[in-house]
Structure formats: C-alpha cells, structure tokens
C-alpha cells in the first residue's frame, strides 16, 4: 500500500480552490476509485458525477493533471503518484460544484440539428435495404458516449468561448452520422456553414486525441463535412457554371 495525494478542485460556480487529500492506493485502482475513497474517508460532500464505472456512460469527465479524461478509465499506475494528482472539472462549461459542470448547453445544441429523415421504405413491409459498407462508415460515430471531453478540449469553445457560433466536435460527429447515413435525405450543409460554425475548426485534432471511444473525429467526421461544405458553397467551377446559368436565365 502506498499513499498518494490528490489535489481536487473544491467550491461552487465561482472561485474555488484546490484542496489536497491523501488516500491509500492499491493495485488496479482508477482515479474515480480514489475520488470515491476520499469521499468515504475525508470529504463526504465532495461532488462528482459518475455512474457505470466502465467508460460507457460518459458521466465522470474531468481534467486529470490537466488532461481531459474519464476518471473511471484512468488507471493510477499510468500517472506519477510521487507528486499530487490534480483533478479539476471540465473548463469549457460553467462549474456548479467541485467536479460537476453544467453541460446543458450541449443538449440545447443537439436540438438545433435537423433530425434524421429517412427516405421512404424500400420494401412493402416498411423496411429498407442498405449496403454493409455504407452503414459501416457511420457505425464509428455511434460509439459516442457524450462525455463531452472533445468539447472540453476544443480551443474554439475552451479558450475562445464561441458557444453561440460553434457546435463543437461532438455535434459535428453527430451531424456527420446523420449526413452520411445511407437512408437520410435531409440537407444540413447550409447550417453547418452558417450557424454551426464548421469553418472555425482548424483541424488541430485535440478532440480525436482525447476521445475515450477512439472515434477518429477530425479525419472521419469533420474533414468530410468540411469537404461537403466546400463542394457546395466554394467550388469555383460550380460557381462559374451557376453564374453562366443565371445569365442565360436572365436573358
């Protein structure tokens, strides 16, 4: 048994301070286990969200030694314990108490994205036919557990606080899952360009790096969406053709 120090952010919506707690660590422990142990031993009013302890519910997002991570999936033997381990709430969202943040902005953003609109059924019994390779492409995006670590690490939200103009990596993945769905007939490109701020992403790939489900957010979701937006609105050849058509029409 060894003792380790955990420096945890305590406090309400404003201010807050880092408080040191010591607890014994043993084989196989993750950061969330240490937090629970600290709650039970010395800080029963220490607030943190958690649920499944298996990296599947996306509740226990936090910043461990400054890195956005799921507390339940971060083993203590992967971080140095000879210095205090810092645990802070996600910075891109308003703090509520201790490690808990208000992530409700995300749910509001999700409502603004046009819903799935499937084409009419292919068969008389109301079912559809899809190619496996077409559905494989969006399968990856469906792994998202909405932990919002990608939103937390994204500098457009984290440092520039452009929550009004940019939907963040999570909802670009969500948009990609809908846009690339073989049955979907909706068009979301105009909003992606104008209201959802896809242009703000400058592909630093931090979101991909922190994703606990290893979704290739930037390469497989955001870049293809950017390409679609460019094709639709910024293709010079298309622009020329359109111009020509309009003139012809004017005459």
């Amino acid at each position: 048994m060894t003792t380790a120090t955990f420096s945890i952010r305590r406090g309400g919506p404003t201010g807050g301070e880092m408080v040191d707690y010591q607890t014994e660590v043993s084989e196989g422990m993750v950061v969330l286990d240490a937090v629970h142990q600290i709650q039970a031993e010395s800080a029963s009013d220490l607030a943190c969200r958690w649920n499944c302890k298996a990296g599947k519910c996306g509740s226990c997002s936090a910043e461990i030694n400054g890195m956005p991570k799921l507390m339940c999936m971060t083993r203590l033997d992967t971080i140095p314990l000879d210095v205090p381990v810092t645990i802070e709430p996600m910075r891109a969202f308003p703090a509520i108490k201790d490690l808990i943040t208000d992530v409700s902005w995300n749910y509001e953003v999700k409502k603004r994205i046009k819903k799935f609109k499937p084409r009419p059924p292919d068969a008389e019994d109301g079912t559809w036919r899809m190619q496996q390779e077409d559905i494989d492409r969006v399968q990856e995006f469906r792994k998202c557990i909405e932990c919002f670590l990608c939103q937390d690490v994204c500098h457009v939200l984290r440092d520039h606080a452009m929550h009004e103009e940019f939907i963040g990596p999570r909802f670009l993945v969500y948009s990609a899952a809908l846009e690339m769905h073989p049955l979907d007939t909706e068009d979301r490109l105009q909003e992606l360009k104008d209201m959802h701020g896809i242009g703000y992403c400058n592909i630093t790939k931090c979101c991909t790096k922190v994703c606990p489900e290893n979704i290739t957010i930037t390469d497989n979701a955001i870049i293809p969406l950017k390409e679609r937006v460019v094709d639709e609105f910024y293709d010079p050849v298309k622009k020329f053709v359109k111009l020509f058509r309009r003139r012809k029409h004017d005459r």
């Binding site: 309400g12 709650q39 029963s44 009013d45 607030a47 108490k97 808990i100």
Partner: peptide, 14 residues
Amino acid sequence: FVPGNIDFNPGWHT
C-alpha cells in the same frame, strides 16, 4: 453526520 450543505452532497444522499 454529514458536513456541507444540501447542494450536490453525495454524503448526505448516502
């Protein structure tokens, strides 16, 4: 006995 107040207090919930 639990310290703190009623806001998000897991010890109190327990």
